[in-house]
Amino acid sequence: METSLYLPVKAFLEAAGYSVKGEVGGCDLVGISDDESPVVVICELKMTFNLELLLQAVDRAAVADEVWIAARISAKGRGRETDKRYRDLCRRLGIGMMGVSDRGDVSVIVPSTSPMPRTNPKRRSRLVREHKTRRGDPVLGGSTRVPMMTAYRQQALGCAAILAKGPLRVGDVRKDVPEAGKILLSNVYGWFERLERGVYGLTDAGRDALVRWPQL
């Protein structure tokens, strides 16, 4: 699965100085530098190099400074990484290629040297904001069919953990979760119930969520 590629590529980019998190804004892997004007690097993962992987990378070009694709290197040497046409296409598009061996070693097949066009600043801003506000790196890049642990879900779990001790006023919850007012009012996941004006408690669904994600 693609998740098996995530940790080797994450380690590779972290060694290059990026803060890396998985499944941010629909991207398998997002790395952001600590510079005042951060550099955004996106990498899409697949078990093999194919056209779909390239199409995903082209879509990410609107929000990233560098776009990479990474896949498992064919043990028999018959993968797309050996196809000069595929490598040349990546070069023309400015997309870097990384190969991951069975041992987890990462090699650069095609460097990402050409600057990618940035045509969607709003989408880029959402991506950077989600990356910076998400605590830790709770989702392996390449994950599918599982609820994504977004920054919003983390904050909602923070509210639930506080309310697990008993009903409280919004202002009391807001001391630890600044966005508590919006989260409790919208109640996206059905975890909270309004007991009276400005006072909220935790539902059974909220308690189940705390059991499901105890580390948060």
Results as ranks from 00 to 15, higher is better:
Gly141Thr: 07
Arg124Asn: 03
Ser143Asp: 10
Arg135Met: 11
Thr113Gln: 11
Gly142Tyr: 04
Pro121Phe: 00
Val128Leu: 05
Met116Leu: 14
Ser143Asn: 03
Gly142Asn: 07
Asp105Gly: 12
Val128Trp: 01
Ser125Tyr: 02
Leu140Phe: 12
Ser112Tyr: 01
Ser125Leu: 09
Pro117Asn: 12
Pro117His: 02
Pro121Tyr: 02
Arg126Tyr: 01
Thr119Phe: 06
Pro115Ala: 09
Arg129Ser: 09
Arg124Pro: 00
Asn120Asp: 15
Ser112Phe: 04
Glu130Phe: 02
Val106Phe: 00
Arg118Ile: 09
Pro117Gln: 10
Ser107Phe: 06
Ile109Pro: 12
Ser114Lys: 11
Thr119Pro: 08
Leu140Thr: 08
Val110Met: 08
Lys132Val: 04
Val139Gly: 06
Pro111Glu: 07
Val139Cys: 12
Glu130Thr: 08
Asp137His: 10
Ser114Glu: 04
Val139Lys: 04
Thr144Phe: 11
Met116Thr: 15
Leu140Asn: 14
Ser107Tyr: 12
Met116Asp: 02
Pro115Arg: 09
Asp137Ser: 13
Gly142Ser: 07
Lys122Ser: 11
Gly141Leu: 04
Val128Glu: 04
Arg118Asn: 07
Asn120Glu: 11
Arg129Tyr: 02
Arg134Cys: 12
Pro111Thr: 13
Arg118Cys: 09
Gly136Cys: 12
Glu130Gly: 01
Thr113Ser: 10
Thr113Lys: 10
Arg118His: 14
Gly136Phe: 10
Gly141Ser: 08
Gly141Gln: 07
Arg129Glu: 12
Arg118Lys: 15
Arg124Phe: 01
Val128Ile: 15
Glu130Lys: 05
Glu130His: 02
Arg124Val: 00
Leu140Gly: 05
Ser107Gly: 15
Val139Gln: 08
Val106Trp: 00
Pro111Trp: 13
Ser143Ile: 09
Leu140Cys: 11
Val128Arg: 00
Lys132Thr: 07
Asp137Gln: 10
Leu140Ser: 12
Pro115Asn: 10
Ser112Lys: 07
Gly136Pro: 06
Ser125Arg: 06
Arg135His: 14
Lys122Arg: 14
Met116Val: 15
Arg118Asp: 09
